[in-house]
């Protein structure tokens, strides 16, 4: 935090009571335009020890219990000994990489294997630093027309790009999110229905992240369950 240049600019006096044992309290630097909106005065609090910890222990035990039962009922897969001489068809990466493997099926390795994951990780890292979604302002709150045009153009271009590479798997979620996004532009904060208001209130970052989440899920599910020999389509119950 101390490295944050913003902090040096703002002249805030931190007041800390020295006798912490008597009245332990939270310290927070509240910056301009970056309010965590903490309102402590009406917040009920609990002691970490033992109350919060007991909750935590319960969570730990529930997780452990579930894992124990899964482990009792389902055996971890083990196939024949590794044999470099014969390649299974299809050879699949661990499930969490199957989205990437699915992309590799469409795009050259540099794109799917390096560019996309690199961009994703980079994007995730910079999220908090680029004023993304900090305000949580609705996408259509300002410049509705201009934004609508830009977003429509980007969407169309992106869909064309996906079509060019024949990536139907990724195209469907993109269209879904895109349609929802453009549709939400028609609403306002005074729309009659809750859903409409909810959709309207969402900022751009929400839409992008949701698109990413759905793409990730769809690609992983497709790679895990719907890909067979030669990375061809297959139904999960066929083998």
């Amino acid at each position: 935090m101390t490295e944050d240049p913003k902090m040096q600019e703002t002249k805030i006096q931190a007041e800390v009571q020295s006798d912490v044992r008597k009245n332990p309290r939270r310290i927070a630097f509240i910056l301009r335009r970056a309010s965590p909106h903490v309102k402590t005065q009406d917040d009920a609090r609990v002691m970490t020890y033992p109350t919060a910890l007991s909750r935590f222990v319960i969570a730990l035990e529930v997780a452990f219990l579930l894992l124990v039962w899964i482990s009792l009922l389902v055996n971890a897969p083990l196939e024949g000994i590794a044999d470099p001489m014969h390649t299974p068809n299809p050879a699949k990466a661990p499930w969490y990489f199957l989205g990437l493997q699915e992309l590799l099926h469409y795009f050259p390795p540099v794109v799917a294997g390096v560019l996309v994951p690199g961009l994703v990780v980079g994007a995730l890292i910079v999220i908090p630093y680029f004023n993304i979604n900090i305000e949580g302002e609705s996408l259509w709150a300002k410049d509705r027309k201009r934004r609508l045009m830009i977003i429509s153009a980007v969407l169309v271009l992106f869909c064309l790009f996906l079509l060019a590479y024949d990536v139907i798997v990724a195209l469907v979620p993109t269209l879904l999110i895109g349609v929802l996004m453009l549709w939400s532009a028609r609403f306002s904060s005074e729309s009659p229905r809750l859903v409409q208001r909810w959709l309207f209130s969402k900022p751009l970052s929400f839409w992008i992240m949701s698109w990413f989440l759905i793409e990730l899920t769809v690609l992983t599910v497709v790679g895990t369950f719907f890909r067979g020999p030669g990375w061809g389509w297959i139904l999960p119950w066929q083998s």
Partner: peptide, 28 residues
């Protein structure tokens, strides 16, 4: 200035939490 008006403070787990804890520990 809110700091001097702390909200209500609960220092012990509730009965329900304890029961959950006991039951789950036993099942585990």
């Amino acid at each position: 200035d809110d700091n001097n008006k702390p909200g209500p403070l609960r220092s012990r787990p509730t009965m329900r939490e304890l029961v959950y804890f006991c039951v789950i520990s036993l099942v585990l």
